[in-house]
Design a protein around this nucleic acid. Structure first.
Lengths: 235, 235
DNA sequence: TCTTTTCTCTAGCACCCGCTATAAAATCCG
DNA sequence: CGGATTTTATAGCGGGTGCTAGAGAAAAGA
């Protein structure tokens, strides 16, 4: 399965630990670049152009290293992509599970998710839209497509189970269609991501998110919430 | 602009018109394949794998012709793609403008659009999802991406103007945010298309469409949707 | 029949793809 | 210092890409 020894043990180019014969210091010539920094550049490249349209030549250029260094440090292009996807999810995509876990109500969680997505997908400093949604469409390699498809479907499943938890907690009517609600929320996110790529502004995405939330079911009892807000309103 | 003489005049391989020295009969060796049938095969290939992932070798195979014939009949790969996009829009995507034009109410138009999209995006006999949404993402050639991006944004604009017409006709409250409604509808369609590609069934897409329509503003007289939401709070 | 016109087939062009063999450079250990 | 070990840069591999030259094949017109 390819060259999977990645020697992640080594930290930076400098010894870092001044202590004499330190334990972690490897034998040969030390790596001349910062592996994490280079990886982050790869994330941005894949985010912008997707897996196939980003050539190894592109990668070596933005990462500032030669091809042999790339292959020695990351295995092959696909392994690098997988690792980049992991970094993306940790660094940029984690807001979703955080909102699902932290917000006390389902409605509040999704309101927060959509609001933060509007920000992230149009923020300066990195490409627009969502890497997981766009970076592996139309690939010649089926497995790469599957890589992100699995993540997307996992997100839908996480949405659904959060909704179910809300129903179980009595927050939502027991007739609520958890699966449809999850798909609905995910569709909105996908639409926001695509429209961000097509040039929509943050304000436009926020208006879209507000409109989508207007459809979200409220508390089941006649008026558990005073005619206005769900949870501690975002923004 | 490449080789744009495409000799579309010739019809089929057979003379068709038995009439003696018919006018339309060209001079040289007649084309041995049905241009329209080959074009339709190209549509399906691009629909399934997208522009870049569909190689000319793939195309010649599914179209059943050699590369020189392809180039003589369609120009180059990109021209063939443009033509294929046109065929797709005529044959498969026209339901949108038809619904916008035929349905008497805005709400009815979008309900019909979402319903028919659920059918089309999961129908057997052709790839799932929407070609315009997916076939030109992550392209190395910027112009190809732009080709479909323009069509998508045209769709949003068409949605918006239909909503505005509904407002002008008194069907919707004058405070309705036409732009946000258009973006909302388009986001749902994009989400449906992607989820169809990710394996969602027709029933799941229909449930998604129903849920999306539950949010659509009703006639202004009854059922609230009180004025005052351009982009701010919901309801 | 012969010429002209057009299409089709074989073969191959130049280029880019992901990837790597090789050897020089940089570090550690003794 | 001299090996040992690992990373680096140069250069290039085999293969796929979009595309086309050149020769032959099939029609019309003479």
């Amino acid at each position: 399965m390819g060259n999977s020894r990645e020697k992640e043990l080594r930290s930076g180019p400098a010894p870092a630990a001044g202590q004499g014969r330190s334990v972690g210091r490897p034998r040969g010539r030390p790596r001349s670049f910062d592996r994490e920094a280079a990886l982050e550049k790869a994330v941005l490249a894949f985010w912008e152009r997707g897996y196939e349209a980003t050539s190894v030549a592109d990668l070596t250029q933005v990462m500032g290293i030669g091809a042999p260094s790339l292959y020695a440090a990351f295995g092959d292009k696909r392994s690098l992509f997988e690792e980049a996807v992991g970094v993306y999810c940790d660094r940029y995509g984690s807001f979703v599970e955080r909102a699902l876990a932290e917000e006390p109500t389902v409605r509040g969680a999704f309101r927060r998710i959509l609001g933060e997505a509007a920000d992230l997908y149009t923020a300066a400093g990195h490409p627009h839209g969502c890497l997981v949604i766009h970076a592996a469409t139309n690939c010649t390699t089926r497995e790469v497509e599957e890589l992100l498809r699995v993540r997307r479907n996992e997100d839908v499943a996480a949405f659904e189970s959060r909704v179910r938890a809300g129903v179980a907690a009595g927050e939502l009517d027991s007739g609520a269609d958890a699966r449809a609600l999850a798909r609905y929320a995910h569709a909105i996110i996908q639409g926001m991501s695509q429209q961000a790529r097509d040039g929509a502004s943050r304000g436009e995405l926020e208006a879209l998110a507000d409109m989508a939330m207007a459809n979200w079911p409220r508390v089941r009892a006649e008026d558990g919430y005073s005619a206005g807000e769900s949870s501690g309103d975002v923004r």
